[in-house]
Design a protein around this nucleic acid. Structure first.
Lengths: 186, 186
DNA sequence: GATGCGTCAACGATATATCGCTAATGTTCG
DNA sequence: CGAACATTAGCGATATATCGTTGACGCATC
């Protein structure tokens, strides 16, 4: 069993036992719309993407967060790697001597070493392949936008709605869900 | 202007300038359903909640993340304070001598000091008021659940759908959005 | 009492990092 | 070639922390 965040006296009925609480999460939120694209990138893509971004013309140093954002932008939203994959890979590249960090903590940035420059020049083609990740189609984009607009309206049911209005909204959503199943069944 | 994540040569047309990219964010995601409850808690509530949680029977030490989760659980989802408010407040309480940290980095936990114990015993009533935050009504919960189920179905349009199906789904969502506006207009 | 100003705590965004799980790939064996 | 096994990189969850913005509250003044 994982280490608990809360150290408790083992004989007390304390209020913080995980199993006793409804899993509501953060203030009524629930997962947003998941990203398009494959569930998982091929091995090596995170590494390739980092190197390609650091090797790009005009780029001197980039922080970890910036690398994630750049990948997301260059794939037009098709793929934004998570910190869980980016930071270990950055460290690995440091260990390999291809990149070097400057600054500490929040100010940490990474740049290619000379060795890294030579490596990326020699493997430019391999390091570019991730950027051709399949883009969301126009229909997929439009669907995401529609879902976004729907969520925005739902946001108004937080404060400025009666419970009767909320009940009516829930009915609408349930009907829409059924309609979506029918569409998927085609 | 804020410090840029990417240090670039100022005279190149580099691919990472923020203004040149569509704001797609992480792989097609967009904001989820925002939480119920006031936009902002009254001043002092974060402090009170932290002290109350650390003072609860059976609680010895709690990490920052655990405090956030505990508050969310005890308010039944009505309020989960963000790291931006919890960590500074924890540090402030440390500076005041009411709590003390043990461990470092990911292992950091916080417990009341003796002074903190005396303080919380003396101010128990004040420190309990946040826990009465207004709960989401049953109708609000049901709406959140409906929205969650709808998003789950939408998740299937990521991979297992044609563009024609996506277009049909978008039409459904747009119709639902209009219906929600009508409900709000009542 | 009403208004304006100053302060500061709460928030969302930014940013780093690790952990446990598991999907995916490569290797070995029959 | 197919199946089984081993390895490891990618992912989501966990966890810490800071920064810039701003909402809310208290105080002073009229």
């Amino acid at each position: 069993m994982r280490h608990h965040q809360i150290h408790q006296h083992p004989h007390h009925d304390h209020p913080l036992h995980r199993a006793e609480f409804p899993g509501f999460g953060r203030g009524g939120e629930f997962p947003g719309f998941p990203p398009f694209g494959p569930r998982r990138r091929p091995k090596g893509d995170v590494r390739a993407a980092i190197l390609a971004i650091l090797a790009a013309d005009g780029v001197e140093a980039v922080n970890g967060y910036g690398i994630m954002k750049a990948i997301g932008e260059q794939t037009e939203g098709a793929w934004t790697p998570s910190p869980g994959s980016v930071y270990p890979t950055l460290q690995q590249l440091v260990d390999e001597g291809l990149i070097a960090p400057t600054g500490e903590g929040r100010k940490t940035e990474y740049a290619l070493t000379e060795e890294g420059r030579a490596y990326t020049a020699e493997h430019a083609e391999e390091l570019a392949s991730w950027a051709t990740a399949q883009r969301p189609s126009d229909a997929a984009r439009a669907l995401m936008e529609s879902a976004g607009r729907l969520m925005a309206v739902l946001g108004q049911f937080r404060h400025a709605a009666t419970d009767a209005q909320r009940a009516a909204a829930a009915e609408q959503l349930d009907a829409t869900r059924k309609a979506l199943y029918l569409i998927l069944a085609e």
